[in-house]
């Protein structure tokens, strides 16, 4: 009896420690952003006086200052990133599903080889070929356009791999056969029957593809040079310049504006995102 009691007591203590650690970790996640949002509402003098978690009343003033800054158009940057990320996501998802479908549904010669190829190139990071990519785009006159940032997404090996795994488990081939017998063309079968059945997988992967494209810095930095075409992360890098360093309130406000859309998306879809992360790890 007493042994049982001490066991449950040590268990309660262990639990207590775990909850405290988890709460500390949660605070660690949120604190930098909390400071950022709060400082976005304070003026430069208040920020330099010390850290605080009580919002100030300078939000509108900071917004006005930020708006008057030359060459820092948050809305333009957001629009550019939105444009690139949306097209990247649409192309990556459609063509990856198409490729996976080709590999799963049809038994053609070289099918295994094609899949092995995709598995091998999956591991090659794009950064290592950026120099050759850039000089090639330069020759094609595509530097400072969005084409080199969007079109390569048609070939996304990891997405093909994921969609293939999902299809093997979740696409009944009998339905496709039935559509075929009804005289449905192959591409139409894919578009009207297979694609809709992939919706759950597509939804999760859409979030990840979109966010990954939105967050990219290395590739656009190398390829884009006129400031009205800057993506959001490229604009963020401008905030480090001395011209912004004189007024911290606007720096924090600008940062908040870049983070806010992701916060909204994340907290709205967190359930699916967390499930998607778990799925990605196990499938491998």
């Amino acid at each position: 009896m007493s042994r049982n009691y001490s066991y449950s007591r040590s268990l309660a203590m262990e639990r207590g420690v775990i909850y405290i650690v988890c709460i500390v970790l949660c605070l660690m996640s949120i604190m930098p952003f909390a400071v950022m949002f709060v400082n976005a509402t304070r003026d430069n003098y208040a920020i330099q006086q010390g850290m605080s978690l009580i919002p100030g009343d300078r939000l509108l003033v900071n917004l006005k200052t930020l708006n008057e800054r030359q060459n820092f158009n948050v809305l333009q940057g957001m629009w550019n990133s939105l444009f690139i990320a949306t097209w990247t996501t649409v192309l990556a998802l459609y063509f990856s599903t198409l490729t996976a479908y080709g590999l799963v549904v049809y038994r053609f010669r070289g099918r295994q080889l094609a899949f092995t190829f995709i598995m091998v190139v999956l591991m090659i990071p794009t950064q290592v070929s950026m120099v050759g990519f850039f000089t090639f785009m330069f020759k094609l006159n595509l530097v400072n356009t969005y084409i080199p940032l969007i079109v390569p997404a048609i070939a996304s090996p990891s997405l093909v791999f994921f969609m293939r795994q999902y299809m093997i488990a979740g696409l009944p081939l009998e339905i496709l056969e039935a559509a075929r017998i009804d005289g449905c063309s192959e591409l139409r079968t894919f578009n009207t029957i297979a694609m809709p059945m992939m919706k759950p997988a597509l939804a999760t992967q859409a979030i990840f593809t979109f966010v990954a494209s939105w967050n990219k810095l290395f590739e656009p930095t190398m390829l884009i040079n006129s400031q009205n075409k800057y993506t959001m992360p490229m604009l963020v890098s401008l905030l480090k310049s001395d011209r912004f360093r004189t007024d911290y309130g606007t720096v924090y406000l600008a940062l908040s504006l870049t983070v806010l859309p992701l916060f909204v998306v994340y907290f709205a879809l967190s359930k699916y995102i967390i499930a998607g992360v778990a799925l990605g790890g196990v499938k491998e």
Binding site: L98, L103, V121, V128, F190
Partner: peptide, 27 residues
């Protein structure tokens, strides 16, 4: 129908060769 497999995977390989394999070799 099996030959359709080639058509379905063609865009991937085409884009891969132009935008990733060639740049790697070029590098």
């Amino acid at each position: 129908t099996s030959r359709y497999g080639y058509f379905f995977i063609a865009p991937f390989f085409l884009i891969y060769l132009v935008f990733q394999a060639y740049p790697l070799l070029n590098t």
